[in-house]
Simulated scan of single mutants.
Amino acid sequence: MHDQPSVRELVQAVKNFVDETAMPELTGRAGFHARVASNVLGTILRDIDTRFEADASEKTRLLDLLEAPADTSLSKLNEDLRQRIRAGELTIRSDDLMRHLKMTAIDQLKVDQPNYSALKKAIEEP
Results as ranks from 00 to 15, higher is better:
residue 68 A to P: 02
residue 48 I to R: 02
residue 68 A to G: 01
residue 23 M to F: 08
residue 13 A to E: 07
residue 2 H to Y: 10
residue 14 V to Q: 06
residue 69 P to H: 06
residue 50 T to D: 09
residue 47 D to K: 09
residue 117 S to I: 10
residue 87 A to T: 05
residue 81 L to A: 08
residue 92 I to M: 09
residue 16 N to F: 09
residue 30 A to H: 08
residue 59 K to L: 02
residue 34 A to L: 03
residue 9 E to M: 04
residue 67 E to D: 14
residue 29 R to M: 01
residue 107 D to Y: 05
residue 28 G to V: 00
residue 61 R to I: 00
residue 66 L to I: 01
residue 95 D to I: 10
residue 119 L to I: 01
residue 89 E to T: 11
residue 38 S to V: 03
residue 126 P to E: 08
residue 106 I to K: 07
residue 42 G to E: 08
residue 123 I to H: 05
residue 79 E to S: 12
residue 1 M to F: 04
residue 38 S to M: 05
residue 116 Y to C: 09
residue 58 E to D: 12
residue 5 P to V: 05
residue 62 L to P: 03
residue 122 A to T: 03
residue 87 A to Y: 11
residue 72 T to D: 05
residue 15 K to Q: 15
residue 39 N to R: 12
residue 47 D to H: 12
residue 126 P to M: 11
residue 75 S to Y: 00
residue 88 G to R: 03
residue 112 D to Q: 14
residue 124 E to C: 03
residue 34 A to W: 07
residue 104 T to S: 15
residue 57 S to Q: 11
residue 7 V to N: 10
residue 36 V to A: 01
residue 116 Y to P: 02
residue 120 K to Y: 06
residue 107 D to W: 02
residue 75 S to V: 09
residue 72 T to S: 14
residue 16 N to S: 13
residue 2 H to I: 05
residue 34 A to H: 05
residue 28 G to P: 02
residue 84 R to K: 15
residue 21 T to G: 04
residue 107 D to F: 06
residue 84 R to Q: 15
residue 27 T to R: 10
residue 91 T to E: 01
residue 56 A to H: 08
residue 21 T to N: 10
residue 59 K to S: 04
residue 68 A to H: 02
residue 96 D to Q: 14
residue 113 Q to T: 06
residue 22 A to L: 15
residue 4 Q to T: 14
residue 70 A to H: 06
residue 104 T to I: 04
residue 118 A to D: 13
residue 57 S to I: 03
residue 110 K to A: 06
residue 118 A to P: 10
residue 93 R to F: 12
residue 27 T to P: 00
residue 11 V to Y: 02
residue 109 L to M: 12
residue 49 D to S: 11
residue 45 L to A: 06
residue 64 D to C: 00
residue 73 S to P: 07
residue 71 D to S: 13
residue 82 R to G: 03
residue 23 M to P: 00
residue 125 E to M: 11
residue 92 I to Q: 14
residue 30 A to F: 11
residue 55 D to Q: 13
residue 109 L to T: 01
residue 108 Q to N: 09
residue 77 L to E: 04
residue 14 V to K: 05
residue 95 D to P: 07
residue 109 L to C: 04
residue 104 T to G: 04
residue 14 V to C: 06
residue 46 R to P: 05
residue 16 N to Y: 08
residue 65 L to F: 04
residue 41 L to I: 02
residue 56 A to N: 05
residue 54 A to P: 01
residue 72 T to Q: 13
residue 105 A to F: 13
residue 17 F to I: 02
residue 41 L to Y: 04
residue 37 A to T: 13
residue 99 R to F: 10
residue 16 N to T: 14
residue 85 I to W: 09
residue 14 V to N: 07
residue 49 D to W: 07
residue 53 E to N: 09
residue 106 I to S: 06
residue 120 K to V: 11
residue 84 R to N: 07
residue 124 E to T: 07
residue 15 K to A: 15
residue 74 L to F: 03
residue 122 A to Q: 10
residue 25 E to M: 13
residue 32 F to D: 08
residue 100 H to N: 13
residue 83 Q to H: 12
residue 73 S to K: 14
